[in-house]
Design a binder for these strands. Structure first.
Length: 425
RNA sequence: GGAGGAGUGCCGGAGCGGUUGAACGGGACGGUCUCGAAAACCGUUGUGGGGGAAACUCCACCCAGGGUUCGAAUCCCUGCUCCUCCGCCA
């Protein structure tokens, strides 16, 4: 969410940046008018309330007197009945306008950073760098679903029986590998990158999802629990960022860095027919997520570090990847700048997203009222929030299947994971 | 699920319906004192919104949302959260 006053004073900039994302700016056109209307009513109603407060005090004093005073009090009380009627009307109108304004403001995306390339969609994303050597095979590499089904470790048919399409049943080595990857990632980020591990609830309420930006606009992407104010989390970003909602942090504690493993649940509405095979796009997947709270001055630096921390997972696993900067049209709603890490998948002869690292500036912090008190100052400021996958576990697993596949149909294990199999693999 | 109790500022804890944004205590911060520190003393200590160049000023907020009233932290409804007891349960 952007600050109301900021929008008022920078309406052209907001329009231009929203347009850069390829979003319709028509709704912004009547912002100024609505906002002015709001301010004029506000001024009037506050004046009346001021009068009411003063009269109340006067009545209070008059009531202690008698005779003439009592008569004077009576006439003031009568006057206030009318004033109150007017206040009620104005308040009601103000409420209506503010609701509309609120809905509008909540649906304005964050301003994209000036370093973000302008573009329409993912084909305009800009490659930043490429890491690793693509494996060379003496045979035609297979996609992971073929490898997994042949080894009997990925069972999509039975998963469909259990829950429907876009679910997977992992068995034996695959489930063991999934668990090993989670532990490996958590160990790396806690022991070498200094993150604090948390295990949050896997369901979140409306307030939490609103703070991080999934609601109100993207309700269709979520699984809602019927009869409860609860949704399955689409990412650990939601519960972890909300840890400090409505709190004022101490500058000494910043940046706060958390890492969390959670399953993630997404309805994938509107993606019918895309990535229907394999583990790429599931309703449920595991992810290890990195979340940071930083000062405004350091957030861009922290984004670079976050990216490096995520990249190291792939480097240690020996999986080739590239980093791209998302263009304005592909940028998420709440983000000002996002790097995607895309892992190489030889079975599909393509790069696929495996991590997304974003800086949200104070966009989420304002929605969730997450502040910090600068050292030695009394006024608090909004923090900056960031997050990134470190990494999407299911996609890491399938990347290992494809990159480490052998001619005999088996799959080798990355060296770094051997301790997680008691070196008995 | 049933029966009770409670929700006030950073914390503890007051608060007859009327100068209460909120006593008192503690903490924190600034200052005086000191070679330093402690103690003591003085002061400061919320958020959002409006106006103003600024000083400053106005409005709202005592869990949330409604209501009664000229006036509500104080009264009435509804919801939420927490605590205690019973039941059930990993």
């Amino acid at each position: 969410m952007l600050e109301l006053r900021f929008i008022r004073e920078n309406i052209e900039l907001v329009k231009e940046k929203t347009a850069r994302r390829g979003q319709d700016t028509a709704k912004l056109d009547d912002f100024i008018e609505t906002d002015q209307r709001r301010l004029s009513i506000l001024t009037e109603v506050e004046g009346l309330k001021n009068r009411r407060n003063k009269v109340s005090k006067e009545v209070s004093l008059l009531k202690q007197g008698s005779g003439q005073d009592a008569a004077r009090a009576e006439s003031l009380i009568v006057e206030m009945r009318d004033t109150n009627q007017r206040i009620k009307e104005l308040d009601a109108e103000l409420n209506l306008i503010e609701q509309g304004l609120q809905t509008l403001v909540m649906s304005i995306p964050n301003l994209c950073d000036d370093s973000v390339p302008v573009g329409q969609n993912d084909s305009d994303n800009v490659e930043v760098w490429v890491w690793g050597e693509r494996p060379v095979f003496s045979f035609t590499p297979k996609p992971h679903w073929e490898i997994g089904e042949q080894l009997g470790i990925l069972d999509f048919d039975r998963a469909t029986k259990l829950a429907g399409t876009r679910f997977a049943l992992l068995k034996g080595f695959a489930s063991r590998l999934e668990r090993a990857l989670i532990n490996f990632m958590l160990d790396l980020h806690t022991q070498r990158h200094g993150y604090t591990e948390v295990l949050p609830p896997f369901l979140a309420n409306t307030a939490s999802l609103t703070a991080t930006g999934q609601l109100p606009k993207f309700a269709d992407d979520l699984f809602k629990i019927s009869d409860w104010d609860l949704y399955l989390i689409p990412t650990a970003e939601v519960p972890v960022t909300n840890i400090h909602r409505e709190e004022t942090l101490d500058e000494r504690d910043l940046p706060l860095c958390y890492v969390a493993y959670t399953p993630c649940f997404r309805s994938e509405a509107g993606s019918y027919g895309r990535d229907t095979r394999g583990l790429i796009r599931q309703h449920q997947f595991d992810k290890v997520e990195l979340v940071k709270f930083s000062t405004p001055e350091t957030s861009m630096e922290e984004l670079e570090k976050l990216l490096t921390d995520a990249e190291e997972v792939l480097q240690l696993l020996g999986l080739p990847y590239r980093v791209v900067t998302l263009c304005s049209g592909d940028l998420g709603f709440s983000s000002t700048k996002t790097y995607d890490i895309e892992v190489w998948l030889p079975g599909q002869d393509t790069y696929r997203e495996i991590s997304s690292c974003s800086n949200f500036l104070d966009f989420q912090a304002r929605r969730g009222s997450i502040r910090y008190r600068p050292e030695g100052q009394k006024k608090s400021r909004l923090v900056h929030t960031l997050n990134g996958s470190g990494l999407a576990v299911g996609r890491t697993l399938l990347a290992i299947l494809e990159n480490y596949q052998q001619e005999d149909g088996s799959v080798a294990l990355p060296e770094i994971l051997k301790p997680y199999f008691e070196n008995r693999f």
